[in-house]
Design a binder for these strands. Structure first.
Lengths: 199, 199
DNA sequence: GTTAGCATGTAAGGAGTTACATGATTTT
DNA sequence: AAAATCATGTAACTCCTTACATGCTAAC
């Protein structure tokens, strides 16, 4: 029954939320704007679009930008149902949201996500990464597994990358917290917004 | 016909090259040691092992470490054919090797990879990342697409991560180049692999 | 003695790719 | 007028996950 429940659906709805587009253009934006779906195949995208049409979340219309002559260049746009569904999807903040693939896409749509959901996703993502950190550091010290230089180098690089992302998330979480307190009269302090220390 | 041609095959053969193991243990190492296949399901691993047995690349044997009493705890080990096949796989350095998923696994086995192949993979990987960088920077300046703060933050973080990996690769490539020139029979260099620079 | 973790599997299905097939539009 | 790129689609297949099903072993 083609649930098409993945991140792709969310990404497509989100991009179409900004402006109507045809499939080809959509594909480019998925990688250039969202970073996800680096090289999504049309064999994946077009069936997904068809399914979204079938569900009534998007509508197709032939491009009217050239009078008469042009052939069917199908432009997709969000329906009212589609907008509603998109907001529902955005409101979800469960474990699925902190996956590598999902997180980026959800984050890109934070502009249309409410503050509570944003915070839950950021904290959830950080938790996920900290688990990963524990595993990496754990296996490093557990049995001092005799790994060769290359394997060690790989693990260290991985560790650094994850630590970096955690620091990035910490800044974002601070920003969100400040943003929330800014409206209250008696907030404790004001932390530095914007980009922070570099070392 | 179960080609099982993916990275998983390579990873399994590589881990079994170090020591015989049973499936459960293998699964843990795949994530802790190789970083890849974070949470590979048994529904994926066991069929893969079965297929490798069928191809004669690994052999199963019941664990003899406890006399008599224990039930079948299947230990897998590389066959001669398996070792040969593993070396063949390691010698490949085509575009498939510079993918995100493949690269980490291949890098982890650099200790058993010849110098030329190592260099081709490192340079290929760097090229792949530089393409990505061009796309990111290109789309940034192309139309100064009016992206909201969150999307911009995401892209910047992505950009930083990729740049970091490129610098890491540059160091590794330098090390490899030095190693090649220093390869007099006498010295065994203890090269500083891994993260070096901090800013 | 029961919970938690070790250990092995299978069947159904989801999410994507590859390879193929077609045609329109723009650039050289 | 040829080549490149834009644009849309389908069928077969791959790889992996989920959900199920089973049983052993150690610790509390």
């Amino acid at each position: 029954m083609a649930k098409r429940s993945g991140v792709l659906e969310l990404a497509v709805l989100g991009l179409l939320h900004e402006s109507p587009m045809h499939g080809y253009e959509l594909r480019k934006r998925l990688s250039s704007q969202l970073g996800a779906f680096r090289a999504l195949s049309y064999g994946s995208l077009y069936p997904c679009l068809k399914e979204l049409v079938r569900q009534g979340l998007i509508a197709e219309s032939t491009d009217p930008d050239a009078s008469g002559t042009r052939r069917s260049k199908i432009v997709y746009q969000l329906t009212a149902d589609g907008k509603e569904h998109f907001q529902q999807l955005l409101a979800e903040s469960g474990p699925a949201s902190w996956d590598d693939e999902s997180f980026g896409v959800r984050f890109a749509f934070f502009g249309r996500t409410d503050a509570d959901t944003r915070m839950r996703i950021l904290v959830g993502r950080r938790g996920r990464l900290e688990e990963r950190l524990d595993n990496l550091r754990g296996s490093f010290s557990r049995t001092r597994e005799r790994l060769d230089d290359y394997t060690t180098a790989l693990q260290n690089h991985g560790l650094d990358s994850v630590e970096r992302e955690v620091r990035w998330l910490n800044e974002l979480i601070d920003d969100e917290a400040n943003r929330k307190q800014t409206s209250t009269p008696s907030s404790s302090e004001a932390l530095s917004l914007g980009d922070t220390t570099k070392e």
